[in-house]
Design a protein around this nucleic acid. Structure first.
Lengths: 360, 360
DNA sequence: CTGAAAGCGCTAACAC
DNA sequence: GTGTTAGCGCTTTCAG
């Protein structure tokens, strides 16, 4: 015995070793079977052109026979690419983000990438740690619907220091250097509020989101629209929430005000849905007494208590576009463009704001 | 120059090499800085006890300074464990599965595992390929809400051949060897149907799921309950659907029958929600003329057009329990127990079936 | 308590 | 076309 000190369980001193039963087939096993080098097999597996037709088919045959599956961990280490991209969203319960995820996955899969979906639960520090884990896992790129406050710095600096391309979706952090795909939040706020004003509402309350760009931007749009219409912005008419449960609570507080609002604009659909529940429970009628508008056009908004008017943002499209941009950034090692793709938000008028008007 | 042929870009012939600027910090960099071996640093990183207190703190300090992050790809390859588990669900748009995902992630994270969520979109072959990718990525374990038909064989055999532990959730494939966490589907079907019968319905239709265990089991429970009550099972009263869109279509077909059903039991909440939309559109009142019950108690079922009566299955709990079982199976290399954890399904009575009764 | 040697399974770059 | 060499960044086993 040459080496008493051999580290691992499989083979002694680089020799052959038949093939421990249960262990997965390796390139080496196939190479040995066929008396070719590991490289040749590797090339066949990856579809390289420079392999003799005959050799190739022998290898292919054996691969099929043994049902060889490349070990992606080893491959990633050697190639320094994982073909994994990370997607971080704040709330998978909001189908808006589930749809983005779907869009991302469906665009990435054909390109050979796997998508790892993470849920930050609207928690900035949890999000940061998720991102660091993804980075440690050596993802090739990142798509983030970030809950970081608008002026966040550290975590993005970290990503950039690592040279990992990323694209922001739905929540635009103030990182001009990073590409963004999503709607203009102020436009969303304006669109929803203007619609309510047009429908005759004068005491429009807003359930604003957390302190991240989407929340802040929509609030701003709401205020702009009020101002443009010469309506006074009542401070008490702005509450905070993040989802349906907190939206419900927020609406209850709004309903206890005097005078009671005649409309509520929720910064996202779950918040608006929760608000509707509170409104109906309190005995008001939607839309006759109180109108409601949300944002996101989530999957179930048409099936809600009262079909919810909302601002559509093309969730699936956001995911697909973000994926496309990211894929490009990954391949072209060039510094990323940093442009923004603004989705045009469109109003979807349903019953909660009075429904489509028959005539002008 | 000894070697004109050095493969990689970083170092020549195992020597030192300062540290190319942009590249991430490695164990080796820290070791060199401190004049200790890579092993020592590795041990500190992993918290091994056998390191001198002084050495340890020097290493720790440097780690912090350089913000060292272990490379999990390399670590996984060497340790032959990735600390990744895969979760495959059929439909992230159904918040039932999003909640399971949440439960899994929250139970796995503290144990050091990352969860990779995949969406099979109710497609058995897509699911199979997702599973194979996860296997190729060397996941340590799998949690599957499988859409394979009840007698599926191949893909599970593959998983078992690789020796990767897995647990089934919500959809029980006939694999007695695999642990299962979820409700008894026949019980769900019975519970929902019996409730409808108690509420006086006699023409109970069913929107059955696809041909997987959950769909089949609930259908069976539905039929059993009808039989037990002496009601005839009308073949036309059974339609198929998988989500809200197809549920809507299915309900429209049911509504065109004569006599029109006086109740619809949807195999999951989205299907039931879609059915409600169709029913209301057709001008029927819920629950007065037609009662509706779903299953899954999805996040928004209380906020739907009519608050939806449903069968709760403790989605988050399913995820947590499955995670616990999987974690145990991963660590104890023992063959997995193969038991089933049956969640007791409970009826959640809301307005769509008439609401809670005031008196008996 | 510390470290040297060997190796995880695969790929990059070059030589034959 | 094919094979060789070196190496990805880390952990394992065992010797000092």
């Amino acid at each position: 015995m040459k080496s008493g000190a051999n580290g691992y369980r499989r083979g002694a001193a680089g020799a052959s070793m038949p093939n421990p039963p249960n262990a997965p087939v390796r390139l080496k096993d196939i190479a040995q079977d066929l008396n070719v080098s590991v490289m040749t097999v590797s090339k066949v597996v990856r579809g390289c052109a420079d392999v003799g037709a005959q050799t190739r088919s022998r290898v292919l045959a054996r691969i099929k026979e043994l049902n060889y599956q490349p070990n992606w961990v080893a491959r990633s280490l050697a190639a320094r690419r994982t073909f994994i991209v990370g997607l971080v969203v704040p709330d998978l319960m909001n189908t808006f983000f589930a749809e983005i995820a779907k869009g991302v996955a469906s665009a990435m899969r054909p390109l050979g990438y796997d998508v790892v979906i993470c849920n930050s639960e609207e928690d900035a520090s949890l999000e940061a740690s998720e991102i660091e884990r993804l980075l440690a896992r050596q993802v090739d790129g990142l798509i983030l619907a970030s809950v970081q406050p608008p002026d966040a710095e550290e975590i993005f600096a970290k990503i950039e220091a690592r040279g990992v391309p990323y694209v922001l979706v739905d929540r635009r952090v103030s990182r001009p250097s990073a590409p963004y795909v999503g709607a203009d939040d102020e436009a969303i706020g304006r669109l929803a509020t203007e619609h309510l004003i047009e429908r005759g509402c004068r005491r429009i309350a807003h359930i604003a989101g957390p302190h991240h760009p989407a929340g802040v931007g929509r609030l701003k749009g709401y205020r702009e629209a009020l101002a443009a219409a010469g309506l006074k912005a009542v401070e008490e008419y702005v509450e905070r929430a993040a989802d349906d449960a907190t939206g419900y609570q927020a609406a209850r507080r709004l309903l206890s005000l005097d005078p009671v609002p005649d409309a509520i604009f929720g910064y996202n659909d779950p918040a608006a849905a929760g608000a509707m529940k509170a409104i109906l429970e309190a005995g008001y009628r939607i839309p006759e007494q109180i109108k409601v508008v949300g944002a996101g056009n989530m999957h179930y908004s048409d099936l809600l208590r009262v079909p919810l008017s909302t601002v559509d943002q093309r969730s699936t499209g956001i995911g697909e576009q973000a994926a496309g941009i990211l894929a490009k950034a990954i391949t072209s090692k060039r510094r990323r463009a940093g442009g923004a793709i603004l989705i045009e938000p469109t109003l979807v008028i349903r019953e909660s704001s009075g429904g489509p008007l028959k005539s002008t």
